[in-house]
Nucleic acid binder design. Structure first.
Length: 457
RNA sequence: GUAGGUAUAGCUCAGUUGGUUAGAGCAUCGGUUUGUGGUACCGAGGGUCGUCGGUUCGAGCCCGAUUACUUACCCCA
């Protein structure tokens, strides 16, 4: 049999022990903060019914859903006409009924509707699981990646929005970031702007264009707006709003003036002001909260607040985002439930922490002590000590089989084990073991009890 | 979907205008050293040069196709 060169599908990755330790540091920190704020963890299946997912992410999104082929002889049940026509799109529905989860929000909505009688509202849940997208991978963009979501359904209160800001602030501060900006905007303000220039129907084009301000600059935005059918007069009205400056309060003030004729726009201003007010009572640790009118985000289902988080320490896309979406569960037949949520981009946070060298040494909790025997006769002597170490909560190993010392030492070095305990005939006779600090090379004769003490037991 | 780039040892990559037997570093294994690792030295294993076809006396190198990977755009986290 020809051997196949081992590799993983593009856009997916293996994670080494060292990487997993760092990833778990991120996940554990974020989960801890979620729990602290009263969010409870759920998980949903890797696969959802295809019908649950289709139509929720727009036409582009539907194409990016990984479909799972039906079990058994799926072609028997395939639609003959579509098969002959080579019509992949239509054929899909007759050969695939399941698909990989595309995000955590839609499965969550399904969960809420399905379990509505068991849930006490407002329901605060968090979820940390991988999602899959059949996208073309590129830098910082994978076909399998993790989302860390916290959402609350069944509460219109803007306290939730304020709490999201606090969660971002606390979690990212705990991860070691020192300078990051939580950008906040409100979909209603964007609607108001579109209303004021009388282009309410073109709100998507409007937001897609101004969202790119920091990427392509004002001239680029103007060009894009012109291409999308906006007039010079529209743009003249837009400019002062897009280029707002000053403190959040000053921006709000100017916005109220600009949006005076738009009821919905003013409602958005009111909401933002309420959130800002709440946050006056809970000072932020490291985050800067910034009202950013150009923040639109691609997701069109946001109806109120919109969040995006960026680090100011390295050049990197957003490391978190979220917002409020009314009628989250409406697509599954449960009307009138509002939801709001945030998400942490764990993979990007990883890159940021790596670049800034912010992973603490404690994140890598490997073996602390390796017992090395000169020959197999030391093994039975070593076992009781090994158990004592482990009972004391010290990660410890006994090198299996009687390998040469060099090999055992190399093993300790490669695994970055800081201490070795050497056992030979002399040690077994005297009961004093060779305790070696692998970094300094210093070796001492210590009793088992002293070794336990030295290792902090 | 659009447009580029790359493909040679387990990994990272050299390889001259096309010319004998395919190169290095790292990694692995063994030895110098049978009670002591990191450093050093010596040695070994490991390749259908992505695949198929073409040009040529001769192709890792030139041409075409194909596949995989990768980068940017659209979009997204």
């Amino acid at each position: 049999m020809a051997s196949v060169k081992p590799s993983v599908p593009s856009g997916t990755r293996d994670f080494s022990p060292a990487e997993m330790a760092k990833r778990n540091f991120i996940f554990d920190t974020i989960k801890g903060v979620f729990r602290k704020y009263g969010y409870q963890q759920i998980e949903t299946p890797t696969m959802e019914k295809l019908s649950t997912l289709t139509g929720k992410y727009g036409d582009e999104g539907d194409k990016l859903i990984f479909k799972v082929l039906n079990s058994g002889d799926y072609l028997v049940k395939a639609d003959v006409k579509q098969l002959e026509d080579r019509n992949s799109n239509l054929l899909t529905s007759s050969i695939s009924e399941k698909a990989l989860r595309y995000d955590l929000t839609v499965p969550f909505a399904r969960y809420v509707v399905q379990h509505q009688n068991e849930i006490t509202f407002p329901f605060k849940r968090f979820q940390v699981q991988p999602v899959w997208r059949a996208d073309k991978p590129q830098k910082g963009r994978y076909r399998e990646f993790y989302q860390c979501d916290a959402d609350v359904v069944g509460s219109k209160s803007l306290l939730n929005e304020a709490e999201f800001v606090m969660i971002y602030d606390e979690a990212l501060s705990l991860l070691g970031l020192k300078d990051f900006t939580i950008k906040i905007n409100n979909r209603k303000i964007l609607s108001g702007i579109a209303q004021v220039i009388d282009k309410y129907d073109s709100i998507i084009d409007l937001t897609v264009a101004i969202d790119k301000l920091d990427k392509i600059g004002l001239d680029g935005v103007i060009k894009e707006l012109l291409e999308r059918g906006f007039t010079e007069a529209d743009i003249d009205k837009l400019k002062p709003v897009i280029l707002l400056e000053g403190s959040n309060d000053e921006k709000l003030q100017k916005l109220r003036e600009a949006l005076a004729t738009s009821e919905i726009g003013l409602a958005g201003c009111d909401e933002l002001e309420t959130v800002f007010n709440y946050l006056q009572y809970t000072p932020l640790k490291k985050a800067t909260l910034e009202l950013d009118i150009t923040l639109a985000r691609g997701l069109n289902y946001y109806t109120g607040a919109i969040f995006e988080v960026k680090t100011n320490e390295v050049a990197m896309g957003s490391i978190g985002g979220g917002g409020r979406y009314d009628d989250l569960t409406g697509m599954f037949g449960l009307k009138g439930l509002t939801g709001a949520g945030i998400s942490f981009g764990a993979d990007r946070i990883y890159d940021v922490l790596e670049e800034l060298n912010l992973f603490p040494a404690s994140a890598v909790e490997g073996t602390k002590a390796l017992i090395i025997c000169f020959d197999a006769s030391g093994e039975t002597f070593a076992l009781p000590l090994l158990q004592k170490l482990r009972n004391a909560g010290i990660n410890a190993e006994l090198y299996p089989a009687g390998a040469k010392l060099k090999k055992q030492m190399d093993y300790a070095n490669n695994k970055q084990i800081p201490y070795t305990i050497l056992i030979g005939s002399e040690e077994m006779q005297t009961g004093l073991l060779a305790f070696k600090d692998m970094e300094s090379g210093v070796q001492e004769k210590l009793s088992a009890e002293d070794i336990l003490t030295r290792l902090g037991a």
